[in-house]
Design a protein around this nucleic acid. Structure first.
Length: 464
DNA sequence: CTTAGGG
DNA sequence: CCCTAAG
């Protein structure tokens, strides 16, 4: 029959592909190889999937529902293929994403997956056609296949790695995981390599598709969402603020968001596994969320520490004064806390002990139980320098300006700050200024030498 | 990660 | 106090 011939053609194409794969990846034992393998040729996969779909459609043209579903999927695959020509990483992302949403992992990950494999071997042993795979999922007799035990062993060992990785990724195993899907696909391919089976690749993927399609309703592939540009940090913050006030998003939006997050997770996971250059968007997003999390995590801790510390009356007073200001400003800003005299003296002591610039040491040894970060300490020192110099200036000018200054630091502290400022200049001389100083000194020495050896210089000048 | 500098 | 670049 022409249908069978067509199918055989398709399967032969797959067969060639498999052989090519095997030629340059003969022993695919570890997972990294598998992932790399999948990354290495996404377009081939696309092509094979496409062909499989075509054959599948040709085979199951009587089933209208599935045809519709497959139409949607085929459309998706084509789009993915087109995107594959744009760039390599994009193609990878598109491929994985497409496959992820077209595949239900719960079905693939459980026994049905093995069933499909077995069934593939069955179909292969019985007849080269796909007559068996059109009834995918139901067949599970392991007695028919001669090399079943061997392949099953391989499969089991690989399954272990898969579950391990999955646990590393997330704690909730009920949710379908992209990694699972990916690994299952790679497992499938490896399994087929092991079997050295020409037709099983096509059949395997085909049965995967079938499983997914019959297992759950086909979700309209949100693969295009993944290419949306990652929002900036500010956008994320603002949108998160706005979203809390907004109504609950619709299910579609929810689905989209989940797909996006899972996409990122997939990319990150793959990156961690293989160190494959990912799209920058995922990186940025993860970084942003990480910093946000850190910030959120930091704040409550500090709040806790604050009460155990030293709540001086002055500080509380200042805090009360500044509380409305904080509320008015952005949320992400840390609560502004005034520096108490005790803190300032501690800071001055620390600087006199450790020197300027070793803010981490000062924070560790003197402000370890405080909410002051090294940056805070450094900023305070900058402000102290400014304030002390200004105070000095004011003192020289006259002391009638006390009202204008919001708060004057005590004379003792100011004097110490000034002393320290002399010993350890804060804006430590940069290379530039040092060079400038050196240059000036050179000029001075030149000048002095010119003064002392003026005639010689002049003579030299004349000579030259 | 720490520091420096600018905002 | 925040952000970011540089080491």
């Amino acid at each position: 029959m022409d249908r069978e011939e067509y199918l055989r053609k398709c399967s032969n194409m797959k067969c060639q592909r498999v052989q090519v794969d095997e030629s340059y990846a003969p022993s695919l034992q570890d997972d990294e190889m598998e992932v790399e393998h999948l990354h290495a040729e996404p377009r081939n996969e696309h092509g094979s999937m496409d062909g499989n779909l075509a054959s599948h459609i040709a085979l199951n043209d009587k089933d209208d529902l599935e045809l519709e579903v497959l139409d949607g999927f085929l459309d998706d695959v084509e789009i993915g293929d087109l995107e594959g020509t744009v760039g390599f990483s994009d193609a990878c992302g598109g491929f994985f994403l497409d496959f992820d949403f077209a595949t239900d992992v719960e079905v693939l990950g459980s026994g049905a997956y093995e069933d499909s494999l077995l069934e593939n071997s069955n179909s292969e042993s019985h007849s080269p056609g796909f007559s068996g795979s059109s009834t995918a999922g139901g067949i599970s007799d392991s007695t028919n296949v001669p090399n079943n035990s061997q392949s099953k062993c391989k499969n089991d060992s690989l399954d272990e790695t898969v579950t391990y990785d999955t646990h590393g990724v997330r704690s909730n195993p009920s949710q379908p995981s992209n990694i699972d899907c990916m690994y299952n696909i790679s497992l499938d391919i490896q399994h087929l390599h092991e079997l050295n089976n020409d037709h099983s690749l096509a059949g395997g993927i085909l049965s995967c598709k079938k499983e997914n399609i019959t297992g759950e309703l086909f979700r309209p592939a949100p693969s295009r969402e993944k290419r949306f540009r990652k929002p900036t940090q500010r956008y994320i913050e603002e949108s998160s603020n706005a979203r809390s006030k907004e109504k609950v998003p619709t299910t579609g939006a929810k689905c989209k968001r989940r797909s996006l997050s899972s996409c990122n997770e997939l990319h990150v996971r793959v990156k961690g596994l293989k160190k494959i250059p990912c799209e920058k968007s995922s990186n940025g997003n993860s970084d942003v969320t990480l910093s946000e999390l850190q910030r959120r995590k930091k704040n409550p801790k500090k709040e806790k520490l604050e009460y155990g510390n030293e709540p001086s009356s002055l500080e509380e007073f200042e805090d009360e004064n500044l509380a409305p200001k904080r509320c008015r400003t952005k949320d992400r800003r840390k609560q502004q806390r005034m520096w108490t005299i005790a803190e300032v003296t501690k800071l001055v002591d620390g600087i006199s002990e450790y020197g300027v610039g070793r803010w981490t040491d000062i924070q560790r040894f003197l402000f370890s139980s405080s909410y002051r970060t090294p940056t805070d300490i450094r900023d305070k020192w900058r402000n102290l320098l400014r304030a002390s110099s200004a105070q000095k200036f004011n003192k020289k000018e006259g002391e009638q300006n006390d009202k204008n200054g919001p708060r004057l630091l005590p004379f003792s502290v100011a004097s110490r700050v000034l002393e320290l400022a002399k010993v350890h200049p804060y804006p430590r001389r940069s290379k530039k200024s040092r060079d400038r100083q050196v240059g000036s000194s050179v000029i001075e020495s030149k000048d002095s030498s010119a003064v002392s050896f003026g005639r010689r210089n002049v003579r030299r000048k004349k000579c030259t």
